[in-house]
Amino acid sequence: MSKHNEDELTTHITKTLDESVDTLDANTLSRIRQIRARAVDKTETRQVNWSGVMSGALATACVMYFAVMILLQSPTSMQTVPLDDLEFISSSENLELFEDLEFYEWLEEDVLQS
């Protein structure tokens, strides 16, 4: 397509599009004006929503508080693991021995008594 043809086509299209803008129906124009009026009103409500900011800050503070509390409590709860249990776990002895511990204690007492 030659440059002349292209220019002719685009000029024609632009002219038709401009005409279509000028012949918009009344209902559409009215709705467009209403939208514009509401958009301009939005500039007045562009104030910082302090209640929203404060709510956000409070929520963040609560989350931080609980996170810190959980972190601080974790080592304590680790220390409450009974040392006796730890001894069983780390022991290389046969687990059956520990399971029958009461029997061996009774046996020991019985031997001592006799």
Partner: peptide, 30 residues
């Protein structure tokens, strides 16, 4: 506004959708 509306109308082929798009764009700018 009119050109913007027509651009949206040509793209969507629908008057209501075009008005919605125009409204979103105007509100965001404001």
């Amino acid at each position: 506004e009119k050109r913007a509306y027509r651009m949206a109308e040509i793209a969507t082929g629908n008057k209501d959708d075009a008005l919605d798009i125009l409204q979103d764009a105007m509100f965001k700018l404001a």
